[in-house]
Design a protein around this nucleic acid. Structure first.
Lengths: 103, 103
DNA sequence: CACTACCGTAAGCACACACTTACCGTAAGG
DNA sequence: CCTTACGGTAAGTGTGTGCTTACGGTAGTG
C-alpha cells in the first residue's frame, strides 16, 4: 500500500467512479456495477486494485460483499502531499540562503 | 487541468521521479534525463504531461528550458481530498440520522 | 439436496502508453 | 555564416491494462 498504488488506482475514471460512489454508502459489487457502463467482473477487478491500494475494504454479508471506504489509502496520499511541500520549502529556503551568502 | 489528470500524471514512476526531482530545484530537460534511465525525449514527453496537469511550468533561458514546480496541480489534489472527506462525513451523518429516526 | 443469488478468477482481446530513434527548429558563440 | 547545444515532435514498437465472456465456488432458500 504505497502512494504510487494510490495514484495509479485513482488514475482510472471507472475506478474513481466506484470509489466516489462508495463515499455515499457501502455497496455490494452488483450494486456498484448496476450504476456503471461496465460489467460486474470489471468492477470486481477494480475493487481488487482499490483494496490493494488501501482505499476500500470488504465485509462479507451472507453471499454478498459490502465494500466501504478505507482511510489508510487517502492518508498515505495526504502524507505524501505534506512531506512534498515541506521538502520543497526546505529546499527553496536552502537555495535562497546559499544564493545570498555566496553571491 | 483536472484532478484526474493529476492522478494519471503522478501514477507513472518515471514521471514521479521527474516531479520529485524538481522539488529540490528547477532543472533543464537534459539535466533531468541525465539522472534517469530513460532517454531525453521520454523526459520531454513526461514533462508535457506534468505541465498539462498543472504540476510544472517551463521558463525559457537561452536555448534551455527550466522546469519548476507549479502549485495549481497539487492544489487541485488537496481540494479533491478535502471535498471527498467532507462529503463522506456528510453522507455518513445523514445515514446515521436516517437510521435512528426510522428504525 | 437442488436451486438460486452473488461474486471472484481465468483466458483472451483491443487499445493505451511509455519507450525508442530520427528529425527539425531555435538560440548562443566562434 | 557555420557550428554547437538544447529540446520539442514524429513515427514506430512492445508491454501493460481495462474490458469482455466463461467458469467455478460459496452462502442462503425451497
Amino acid at each position: 500500500m504505497t502512494y504510487g498504488e494510490v495514484f495509479s488506482a485513482l488514475a482510472d475514471p471507472t475506478r474513481r467512479s466506484v470509489f466516489e460512489s462508495l463515499r455515499e454508502e457501502p455497496r455490494s459489487v452488483g450494486d456498484l456495477a448496476a450504476g456503471l457502463p461496465v460489467s460486474r467482473p470489471a468492477v470486481s477487478q477494480h475493487l481488487r486494485v482499490l483494496e490493494q491500494a488501501g482505499l476500500v475494504t470488504a465485509e462479507r454479508v451472507g453471499t454478498r460483499r459490502l465494500y466501504s471506504i478505507e482511510r489508510s489509502g487517502l492518508h498515505a496520499l495526504r502524507d505524501y502531499l505534506d512531506t512534498f511541500w515541506s521538502d520543497a520549502l526546505t529546499a527553496y529556503a536552502a537555495r535562497i540562503a546559499e544564493r545570498t551568502s555566496t553571491p
